[in-house]
Design a protein around this nucleic acid. Structure first.
Lengths: 110, 110
DNA sequence: CATATTAATCGCAATAATACGATTAAAAGT
DNA sequence: ACTTTTAATCGTATTATTGCGATTAATATG
């Protein structure tokens, strides 16, 4: 086995896990932090900034783009990447709703 | 290769990724949702509720506990699990701080 | 004390994710 | 046209994760 049993979980559970997966690698955190800091940059800047090989950065960018967190605009031989702010808000709000659940803070558990 | 290069990232980046990893599997989302819903329950309840084998649930519980999101209290042959509310708040607040970063919503990117 | 209950751990098989060299593709510059 | 620049893709090696059967450990019960 080793295969996640997607079919036994709710759609929400699978979606939350998929969003979380994007944040579950320091390289993608670093990419997002840099994009937020400089507003927009090209792939090569991220390679220099982060210190992973170009194909590796490209692969992480692909995943972030696949889930809609970022977008890339071709400009000659370069591709300019930035946060997709609308999609970011959608995804992140869904995730924050989960994190913000009421924990019955008064009640003791075990 | 295939090894995440932890050493090239900041402590914050690695920590955020580690927290996110906990939420990056639907089984762990389901476990946390159930614990939040019923306040506390034993391992066997989660096995029945979620439909994965007992060793699999036990493994997920171990990871959640390792990072401090939940705690387990032995009670005879059973172990009662619940959200560790203090730790949950610590971890989740750190993560929300990242998600809530200012995106310069007015500014256009590319 | 024998047995049942409950959960952890071991060991393994299978899939997923990470990383990068080599190559390709596409546009820009000379 | 040739070369350079830039990023995507391919192929592959390696590590990580997931899942579970079998077993173990620990307590409870008859």
């Amino acid at each position: 086995m080793g295969l996640t049993k997607t079919e036994i979980f709710t759609e929400t559970q699978n979606e939350l896990a998929q969003i979380a997966k994007l944040f579950a690698h320091p390289a993608r955190i670093a990419i997002l932090q840099h994009l937020i800091a400089v507003n927009a940059c090209i792939c090569g800047d991220l390679v220099d900034e982060i210190g992973l090989a170009q194909p590796t950065i490209s692969q992480h960018l692909k995943e972030l783009r696949k889930m809609g967190l970022i977008k890339g605009e071709v400009d000659g031989t370069r591709v300019c990447y930035c946060i997709d702010k609308i999609q970011w808000k959608n995804r992140v709000d869904a995730f924050k709703a989960f994190l913000d659940q009421d924990l019955n803070l008064g009640q003791e558990c075990c």
